[in-house]
Nucleic acid binder design. Structure first.
Length: 375
RNA sequence: GGGGAGAUACCGAAGCGGUCAAACGGGGCAGACUGUAAAUCUGUUGGCAAUGCCUUCGGAGGUUCGAAUCCUCCUCUCCCCA
């Protein structure tokens, strides 16, 4: 997997690049729609590609392992064949589930024992097992198995947690490097930098992942409860120490503003459930601000959802979308998700354009103010 | 024509002498959501100059210190039998 920087800014750390994968090239900065269970909820892969302009999507090791299970994914010939998405795929390792599943899991040196959220059955994930599963899923980019530390963790816990993540990373690479892809194309393993909100730990974590010759590096454990300013600080601390010639992936982030601020700090890749989940719940992100489409004020507004939007769904009216969402019609969730994803992709595409032109910074400053407006 | 059941807030429905401006659902209104246990969750929902006051439980009277709750009459609805 090769990453080529195309442009950098002089007054910002923002970068534009191209990442080559076995399933095509990814221009960065990029937003990756989240398709946890092998589907970006409510969106056809055709629309992801042609309407939204997605270049790579996510899947989740934990969810796909539990259902439908590896036997079926392998029989299909991997996730790409199973869900008919022909572009690159990245799978998260299940580390975030270890964090979000709360008390139905138990951590040890060996790995994590957890109960299925579907049927309560007991399972164990180890770094080795997670690598094997991701070989079976066949994602182009696979993530290391980590512990995602809560944003408010004490230093002593954050340090212990980071050290566990580091030991697991060795085991991840060991297994990954001793196994082969199952479907005839290259897979890359990205380490995850933890360290919570502690600059010193983040620096240590960054230095540690650099000892592995990875194709890209991820920043994890952010946007998990800490203040936004702290998230930006930690991002800056990490990107300052990462090599220029590898992509940086900020996991799980975030709002449109978070994304622009993080691009400014040198991040290349993002993913977040926000455009789809918040879309299903009636929140629209547009170039003019945020809309809560359930609010009564849109009831009789027959203007298009987003007059600047590039998706075909943007031609539906606000009043119609409100009606669908209020009526709990599934098309409402689909339209809102599709609009939001198209907007996110427009945002990173425009950021890329501005970086290439050399005027990202001023564009970003204006855009950030606009995006905060609640319409 | 005979017998029975019932009428409660936007809708459905509890309550059957005081702790009732009235449970609970739905609907309405608003908020939350960041590597998806989420088509989910939370708040609010008679009025007002509002730590209190006013109007409300089909209508009109009555009993009582006190009534959505008990009594009388009226209006309307539903069910069964002819």
């Amino acid at each position: 997997m090769e990453f080529i920087l195309k442009a950098t800014e002089s007054n910002s750390r923002a970068r534009a690049g191209v990442l080559h994968t076995g399933h095509g090239v990814i221009e960065t900065p990029v937003f990756m729609p989240v398709g946890t269970a092998g589907t970006v909820k409510g969106i056809h892969t055709r629309d992801l590609k042609e309407d939204i302009g997605a270049r790579i999507i996510l899947g989740n090791t934990y969810h796909l392992y539990l259902r439908p299970g590896m036997e079926i994914i392998e029989a299909a010939g991997g996730l790409h064949k199973f869900n008919r998405w022909e572009g690159p795929i990245l799978t998260d390792s299940g580390g975030f589930q270890v964090f979000s599943l709360g008390d139905i899991r138990k951590l040890s040196e060996e790995g994590v024992k957890f109960q299925s959220h579907i049927d309560g059955s007991y399972h164990q994930f180890t770094p080795e097992r997670v690598m094997d599963i991701q070989r079976s899923i066949g994602a182009d980019i696979v993530m290391a198995f980590d512990e995602c530390t809560p944003g408010n963790a004490e230093y002593s816990y954050a340090k212990k947690s980071l050290e566990l993540t580091q030991r697991w990373l060795h085991r991840c690479f060991e297994r990954f490097d001793s196994t082969l892809p199952k479907y005839g194309y290259e897979q890359s393993l990205f380490p995850i930098i933890q360290g919570c909100t502690y600059e010193q730990l983040r620096k240590v974590a960054t230095a540690h992942v650099k000892t592995f010759d990875a194709d890209g590096y991820a920043i994890g454990g952010l946007a998990v409860g800490e203040p936004e300013e702290v998230m930006y600080e930690m991002t800056e601390v990490v990107t300052a120490d990462l090599p220029d010639n590898k992509p940086r992936y900020l996991m799980g982030v975030g709002t449109p503003v978070n994304i622009l601020e993080s691009i400014d700090r040198g991040v290349d890749m993002f993913d977040c459930v926000m455009p789809t989940r918040n879309g299903r719940n009636g929140m629209l992100f547009t170039s003019e601000g945020i809309i809560n489409i359930r609010n009564k004020k849109w009831e009789n507004n027959h203007n298009p959802i987003d007059r600047n939007g590039k998706s075909f769904v943007d031609h539906y009216s606000l009043a119609y979308l409100r009606h669908l969402i209020i009526s709990n019609e599934m098309l409402g969730a689909q339209i809102a998700s599709q609009h939001n994803l198209a907007f996110y992709l427009w945002l990173v595409d425009t950021a890329r354009e501005k970086i290439m032109e050399g005027n990202f910074k001023s564009w970003k400053e204006n855009m950030v103010e606009q995006l905060k407006i609640r319409l």
